[in-house]
């Protein structure tokens, strides 16, 4: 079957199997920034935004995303044009091996798009799927708090590319 999806603001059309999950389709089509790990919705590495909300792409049927918009971490920012969240992760030492970071950044963006003044508890809840086995979680928490502060200072209230 054919599905049409807007990925990082670009309209794409893919032939997919009715039972394929988004993670497999995205990686096959070159979106290698979307990481696979547990394939059971537990680890958060494959998190993407579907119409602005975080979802586990390993559990999302590609056919169900037909007609919707996706954002991967690359759509949030890249090395040349990092987003304020990505900057904050680097500055706060929240990145080591980096494998989990695409999912963590995506979850943080979903939170900060709605709330640029989150409490620590709200951050933990909004990122409770994102497992990290090397950095630990405190640095990520500090990074999101720092990004939120930056957004408030900028007065934009929106987590867009710099």
């Amino acid at each position: 079957m054919t599905i049409k999806i807007v990925i990082n603001s670009v309209q794409r059309t893919f032939d997919v199997q009715p039972d394929e999950v988004l993670l497999d389709v995205l990686r096959r089509e070159g979106y290698l920034e979307v990481k696979g790990s547990c394939h059971a919705g537990d680890c958060g590495a494959c998190t993407i935004l579907l119409d602005g909300r975080p979802v586990a792409s390993c559990l999302t049927l590609a056919a169900k995303a037909d007609g919707h918009s996706l954002t991967t971490v690359r759509g949030i920012g890249d090395q040349a044009h990092p987003n304020v969240i990505q900057d904050a992760f680097v500055k706060n030492g929240a990145v080591q091996c980096g494998y989990c970071i695409p999912g963590a950044i995506v979850s943080a963006k979903a939170l900060l798009d709605e709330n640029i003044n989150p409490t620590e508890d709200e951050i933990r809840l909004a990122m409770d799927s994102n497992y990290c086995r090397c950095t630990g979680y405190e640095q990520q928490l500090e990074a999101v708090l720092s990004a939120a502060e930056q957004l408030r200072e900028d007065g934009t209230g929106k987590v867009s590319k710099k």
């Binding site: 958060g44 979802v55 586990a56 559990l59 999912g103 979850s107 409770d128 799927s129 994102n130």
Partner: peptide, 12 residues
């Protein structure tokens, strides 16, 4: 409803 399961499946 806002706390059980994970943040990336609560929207699914």
């Amino acid at each position: 409803a806002g706390r059980i399961a994970h943040n990336n499946v609560r929207d699914m």
